[in-house]
Write a protein that binds this DNA or RNA. Structure first.
Lengths: 219, 219
DNA sequence: TTACGTTTCAAACAAATGTTTATAACTGGA
DNA sequence: TCCAGTTATAAACATTTGTTTGAAACGTAA
């Protein structure tokens, strides 16, 4: 139990600090002193700072991918080979994202970490996430393809990334944006609230009319 | 000229490295050695690393804000006090953004820096940008407000940030995404092409139906 | 208890960081 | 030419970083 306790305390503290300041800006000494464990404990239990970062992600992404896969299984079964509407796919994604960290009441941390994974270069992290969790994303985009047959493949590709950008950008800058929103509109914004606001926006964006076709636009 | 040369070489090198790796991950020694100037030159010419970061931003944002202000002046004059349609506002923003770094062919760097300014905590940076360049953004959002009277203020605030995320995320990850698109869809994507694709998406997103009102969603 | 594998701990390590200093080199005007 | 003032340079500075070490403390099964 002593071991488990130390490992958990490190992970709990690290994920919060990483989410607040980023990876490079958070030192092992800050983590270990705040977690009230010895400095060497990180290298003993995780091996290195890089591995600690990956472990922090794994603790969120492992349960997420499992649940998301299961949710997609259920969704596919329910539609028995028929195309699944776009809204349901998005709903399932949002549901799976929201479910996982609800247990620890740290959805904000989860989102901010996802944002950091993209925005902070950290080559090893992107590689790790791609190799470890790229499969679900591939499965999901294949289903989106069936749900939006009117979109050319390349157009859908870009729109999905536009939307991914909205989500990641918003959540990874959440604290700052929330402060502004709170001050200017006297409104306390929860993550669930943002998901609620995102839903119609994402659907509308994916269903927007196609851009005028390219004529002589090369540069 | 020797002075100007050193200052410029530092800025040119720093902005690329910052965009590639982030601020904390880029040391002054990396910058100065790559720029072929003495290590102390940064502290001599800029005072500190923080000030260098701000100078990198200023070199993009100063000309941008000036041009954008002028473009908005012209737009307002052309409509003589009448409300300006959303499409025209977005068009003007896109035009101003595209104009500035075109001179140095570094739109990608500009976008990536903007993304970092939001995602990296770096308190001093956000404060600096807000104090120095908050004005244009305020002016622009005020015009957007007139163009979208059907949106509640807070809803418009969030949707603007959703779209900001799409743009910054897409352009700051442009190289990687372009490679994928090229390989998977045999399509060479230009920046103008992306702007063309973004236009209908952004308009549709801003005009999406309002989300269902909040009932008992607090957490 | 004894003995053994695991975990903790304080200390030290080498490397890297931003910044400062003192000296040299250069610049343009008297 | 000589002299300010500006810029460049190498060296050193004090911190901070991630990691390693060796001994102590702990828990557990024989």
């Amino acid at each position: 139990m002593a071991q488990n306790d130390t490992v958990t305390r490190i992970l709990d503290t690290a994920e919060v600090l990483f989410a607040e300041r980023g990876f490079a800006e958070t030192s092992l000494r800050t983590i270990t002193s705040k977690a009230k464990v010895n400095l060497a404990a990180v290298n003993y239990h995780f091996g290195s700072k890089k591995s600690l970062i990956q472990a922090v992600f794994a603790r969120y992404l492992d349960p997420f991918t499992e649940r998301f896969h299961r949710a997609l299984d259920a969704l596919e079964a329910r539609h028995g080979g028929q195309a699944i509407p776009l809204e349901e796919l998005l709903e399932t994604l949002a549901g799976s994202v929201l479910e996982v960290p609800a247990e620890r009441n740290s959805l904000k941390v989860f989102m901010r970490l996802l944002g950091l994974a993209y925005s902070q270069a950290q080559g090893h992290l992107r590689r790790y996430i791609q190799e470890e969790y790229g499969g679900v994303f591939t499965r999901f985009t294949a289903l989106i393809r069936v749900a939006t047959p009117e979109l050319p493949d390349s157009e859908r590709f870009w729109r999905l990334h536009f939307m991914l950008g909205s989500v990641i950008f918003t959540f990874s800058g959440l604290d700052a944006l929330r402060d502004i929103a709170e001050k200017d509109y006297d409104e306390h914004v929860t993550v669930r609230d943002l998901v609620r606001r995102l839903r119609p926006v994402v659907v509308a964006a994916m269903q927007a009319p196609l851009p005028p076709s390219v004529n002589a636009q090369e540069a």
